[in-house]
Structures are given as structure tokens and as C-alpha cells.
Amino acid sequence: MRKLLVSGALALSVLAAGAVAIAAEKEVHPPHKHWHFQGPFGTYDRAAAQRGFQVYKEVCAACHSLRMLSYRNLVDLGLTEAQVKGIAAEAQIADLNDDGAPVDRPGKLSDPFKRPYANDAAAAAANGGKAPPDLSVIVKAREGGADYIHALLTGYVPFEKLTPAQIKEFEVTKDDNYNTYFPGHKIAMPAPLVDGKVTYVDGTKTTVEQMSSDVTEFLAWASEPHLEDRNRTGVRVILFLLVLAGMMYAVKRQVWADKH
């Protein structure tokens, strides 16, 4: 009886595990890349994130907002206050003057990032009916996180290079954008990056791979600016708790010594 039941339970769990594996095979998993911010001691690569900000500003920002961030946040990225003030001042922000009349004024540190469109309806109208998603928490909002964003930006396949089978299965036409990693493969966003799209001030070569990896580093930071603080605090808290647990265990042993 005992053996029968145990083997029954085992068989059930093996079946379940098998089904999980089968279900997982259907999806295309983004390749895993090692990120500077990974792991309990991870930090953001400031140079990469600054280059990534440049890519965002010169490419992505044409369509994608970053509304949870303010210009002041860029100081955390390692830019000087003067640099950030300059970046903010480039934007014309709608405001009211002292008489209550609408005016456009240069941006200040405290302003949120200027959005490319006046509102979601305008964003949708300019992009074939669907507003480009805000990128503030995009790395947290996608299965696969940074790996997925990076894979998506580098995963475009031109129509000429698709196999007839792919064209047939996903009903791709010449006007569609095919992306290996986008669910369903047909994505509204045309390939945003081409080699040499931006010019980095630090001289780093602007390949699609490089720009994609940099902008992903930047977006990861934008999604979670406090990650370094979190990791630092976590290491200290866990060390403290481990020591405390050890001491509590010793106390418990001591208290129970005469009862064992």
C-alpha cells in the first residue's frame, strides 16, 4: 500500500514536470546576457547607462515617453548637475506664467521628462492606432526583463531573409516588421536601430548590438533607480540576520540544555 501510494505521487509529479517542460518549449526565450546590475552585488555600469541615455534621447524619445522620471534623476546616472540642467533646458515645457497665460518655458531639474505626444490619444493617432508604451518600468513589465528588451532590439529579421515557412506561418507581408522575440513576431515598431545611428562622445563604436545593450542598461536603471541601494542594504541585513540567527540558536540550545 505504502509503496503504491509513494510511486503514485512520484508518477504524478513527473507528469506535471513533463507538462511544464512541454509548455515552455513553445516560447522563444531571449538569449541570456550577463548584465552589470545582476546578482546581489550588482551595480549599474554608469558609462553604458549614459550612452544608453543618449540612445534613448536621440532615438526612442521620438515616440516613447519616460514619464516616471524627472530630469533631476539623471544626476544619479553620474552626469553633473550643470550637464543635467543643460539637458533639461533643451526641452520646452508647457506651463502657466504669473498671469495664468499658457507659455512654453525651458525645462528645469524638477520637471518630469517631456513626453513626445500631448496625450495618449495623440500618441495612438500618430502610430497607427496604438500608443507606443511608456518605458519607465518596461524592463520590469516584460517577461525576461533586460534580456528580452535587448533581444527585441536586436531581433529584427528583414523580410528578404525570412524563410517561406515563417512567412506562411505568421502571415508576414513586406510591410510588416518581423521580430524573432516578439510574441507573434509581427511588431508595430520598425527596427529602431541601425549601425551608426548615434555618435557616442566617448568614441565607442555604435553597432546595433552596442546601442541596444547600452539603452537596455539605461532602461534597467530607469525601471529601478534604487537597485544599488537595495543590494547594499540587502547584503547588510542578511549578514546581520545570519549572525542574529546563530546567536538565537545558541541561546535556544542553552535554554533547552537541561530538557534534552
Binding site: 537595495r230 542594504t233 547584503v235 542578511i238 540567527a245 538565537m248 535554554v255
Partner: peptide
């Protein structure tokens, strides 16, 4: 004291997820 130890040990695992 035994509960104290159990709570702290549980908190270690909890902290791994939180942080």
C-alpha cells in the same frame, strides 16, 4: 527562545526575496 530562532531563520529567507 525557540520561536525567536524560528522567526529570525524565516526572516533570512524572506530578506533574500525582499532584497
Amino acid at each position: 527562545m525557540k520561536d525567536g530562532f524560528g522567526v529570525i531563520a524565516f526572516m533570512v529567507v524572506f530578506a533574500v526575496f525582499v532584497f
